[in-house]
Design a protein around this nucleic acid. Sequence first.
DNA 1: TTGTATGCGTTATCAT
DNA 2: ATGATAACGCATACAA
Lengths: 337, 337
Amino acid sequence: MRSVTIRNVADLAGVSVATASRVLSGHPSTSEVARSAVNNAATALGFRPNAQARSLRKTSTQTIGLVLPDVRNPFFADLAHAVEQRARDFKYLTLFGNANEDAEQQDRYFDIMLTQRVDGLIAAPQGNLADLQAVLDSGVPTVFVDRVISDTTVPSVTPDNVTGVQEAVRHLTNLGHRRIGYIAGPQSTSTGRERLAAFQSALADTNADDDADLIFFGDFQAASGAAGAHHLLELPHPPTALLAADSLMSIGAIGVCNERGLAIGSDLAFVAYDDIEAFSLINPALTVIAHDVNAMGRLAVDLLTQVIAGETPESVILPSRLIVRGSTPSLPGGRTP
Amino acid sequence: MRSVTIRNVADLAGVSVATASRVLSGHPSTSEVARSAVNNAATALGFRPNAQARSLRKTSTQTIGLVLPDVRNPFFADLAHAVEQRARDFKYLTLFGNANEDAEQQDRYFDIMLTQRVDGLIAAPQGNLADLQAVLDSGVPTVFVDRVISDTTVPSVTPDNVTGVQEAVRHLTNLGHRRIGYIAGPQSTSTGRERLAAFQSALADTNADDDADLIFFGDFQAASGAAGAHHLLELPHPPTALLAADSLMSIGAIGVCNERGLAIGSDLAFVAYDDIEAFSLINPALTVIAHDVNAMGRLAVDLLTQVIAGETPESVILPSRLIVRGSTPSLPGGRTP
DNA sequence: TTGTATGCGTTATCAT
DNA sequence: ATGATAACGCATACAA
């Protein structure tokens, strides 16, 4: 199983390893004869350079690490895809780590990425500074995406977590809703915290109820969305509208509504976060807070290449906006927008 | 940015690199003093062994490659997660490659995986033998998952693509459906071919129509499911039931039904492939052909470890079954099951 | 243009 | 138990 090395190629081509190396890596100083001899030998032997040896010699590995909380979350699946595609443009191989929404697994992946000597790291981080310490200490070029850890100087690409929520709350109260249930994300994430703060602050500007009961804390996974819907709908004064802080919790919550025979859009208004493809399953269409995942992934890679190049790019905040569709009708007796 | 090496650790600990290496890799022949000195030095310096150098010296990289057609397909996202989790049990890092349902990108990833000297490869392959030639030639331990390439001896873990489809067709015809539209997967994949063959053969056993028009060829992505639904519903004699060969095409097709105001479960019966979480969005609940993605991922890794160990494990076929839910009611005038 | 020789960081062999 | 040293596969500085 030992593979063919550049030495075998050189021998077959009748040249030195140095010449073989030069030909194979496109160095200009090579003769026509050497080039054809080496290339022929290489294809004849099926030579494939050993990435480990090459990385050891150069200081770069041409790989970047991507640590995300959950591939099974469609938002992150889209993000992973966007990052990977953009990384290819820069000839980077993306090492992908799935943290399972768990700080410990995340840290294990950070460790692995550093051990693998990735040229750069893109992460949607969890937890606090301590979890990132190893990464920061290592000095490996890093960019945060979607989420952020405070008190660091790491550049980031994040969504505007305020505007969309604000618009959603205004939209719902304009429709006449006074009791809006909110299924929040985990407060260990910046997105969870910022979206909740935006919700509470937007609520304060309206005449809607701001009972603590109306807020349920989930973990960005579907099961917690289901639990949240159960909790909120069992309230003595249940909400007439629901807002969930990510797509997976929305899926869980809507599943519960279906089970209970509550028709989205007529019995209950619903606003979801993220505009994922699967939402086309539901009828009437969902009102969502949308942002551009693709741009987020692309930009994260672009920023990372800048960091790798020694620059210190500015963080960017991507806009998010409310897309009104059929799931948020006006309440009987409520004003129309 | 040059990281700390074992040499730095050895120097600080006042021992040779050989001793440092022994201590760090848990070799028995080390003294108590050496151990504590080296360990202290290592943590003090934040030493992290260079995976490239280690892989170069040993013959293994402790990584496996996973090449899948599309992360954004929930089925493959689940599969990726399952594989990765199981691989961790064996201390393998999973290198993930996303082929984008494209044979060329897939081959590029195969190439990268070989260049990275993965210890083994798991793939849901596309295309034919030629695409796999490099992999097969290299002799790298390989296992197919979900999909398969014929005329190879590569062990595989695949779903039973016949039983579920058979049950679905029988179920629908028992309900009185005579015109069943089928949105097929690409015929360049084994799952696409086998499911279509199963559909046609099951149909032949019934009195349902088998117009060629009732079959639409998609590509396992949502847009083609939408196109398929359009095509089928525009037919002079449109189908009363739809069956789609994967979840993404189902999402696309159901989206179109929603747009056209066709109510799933009353105006139109629908059977989807794969039982994904997002399907809980739809009401009434979808009748689906389900299989155990988790088992599939786990088994693929288990088989791969056997291949790596030099064994030649048997391929396994995982059962799939029809789960009847609300989206397949009986036709007016049809027999009930 | 080409070859020789050295080093990347680690592990393993062989002495001691 | 420990140290010196070779070797893994490749790229490059230096010589020729």
